[in-house]
């Protein structure tokens, strides 16, 4: 039995769909990239050092994983709007605004999971790096290298949170498409909401399938890296 689904492509056709895939990836990859650059040093700092209030900081990071995305979007929009404190940068309803909100949502996820990975590296390994003449930076690099598979998991989790996010980017991005049918701030997730609202469920499902394939591809890459790590250990 052959199941055929007749899909009426939206105006702009595949060029439109490719443009929203591009915007989705551009926003999420940039946000997760910047988030990783911030999260890793924070995870190393919190994981390495004892300081008053460490438990509170850890609790705040973990709580951040549950930030409601629409609240984040609302706060970012207020900050970036013309009357907001950052209004002068003119970033509201731009891909950069979407990156900021995704950065805020992904950072606690990447930091928290990275922190667990960093803390699982034994003190004796850090001691060995120090004893071999390593500086603090060298010891940090050793820890990152030893925790690399956990850190990959953290980045994947952050990417999953970012790429599947809809609430905040809808608020701060505005879901804008140019008159020539090319996406400016429309992503796969926000496009699905548009198609669903207009009753065009087939194209919504196609977009959903593309989104799933993207997430699946990235997670497949992560699984491969992790299995490579396990293979090394048992080699």
């Amino acid at each position: 039995m052959t199941l055929l689904i007749q899909v009426q492509l939206p105006d702009g056709g595949w060029a439109y769909i490719l443009s929203i895939i591009f915007v989705s990836l551009q926003v999420s990859v940039t946000a997760v990239g910047v988030s990783t650059l911030v999260s890793l040093p924070v995870a190393l700092l919190v994981g390495f050092t004892d300081f008053p209030g460490k438990r509170v900081v850890t609790a705040v990071i973990n709580t951040g994983m549950g930030f409601p995305s629409v609240v984040v979007g609302l706060v970012v929009l207020i900050l970036l709007s013309n009357s907001g404190p950052l209004g002068g940068f003119d970033l509201a309803f731009t891909p950069q605004a979407m990156m900021i909100s995704q950065f805020i949502l992904a950072t606690p996820v990447i930091t928290s999971v990275s922190l667990s990975a960093v803390e699982s590296v034994e003190q004796s390994v850090r001691d060995a790096a120090f004893a071999m003449g390593g500086t603090d930076a060298d010891v940090g690099l050793v820890v990152i290298k030893e925790a690399r598979y956990g850190i990959v998991t953290a980045i994947l989790a952050g990417f999953g949170r970012a790429i599947s996010e809809v609430g905040s980017i809808l608020i701060v991005g505005g879901n804008i498409v140019f008159s020539d049918g090319q996406s400016y701030t429309r992503t796969l997730t926000t496009a699905i909401t548009v198609e669903a609202r207009q009753g065009r469920y087939e194209i919504g499902l196609v977009l959903g399938a593309i989104l799933l394939l993207l997430v699946l591809g990235v997670n497949g890459l992560g699984s491969w890296l992790r299995s490579k790590g396990r293979g090394e250990r048992s080699a």
Binding site: A131, M132, V142, K145
Partner: peptide, 16 residues
């Protein structure tokens, strides 16, 4: 420090 090295009770080798 770099003229001294140390070995511990546990080998503490890196995953490499």
């Amino acid at each position: 420090r770099r003229r001294i090295s140390m070995v511990f009770q546990e080998p503490s080798l890196f995953n490499a």
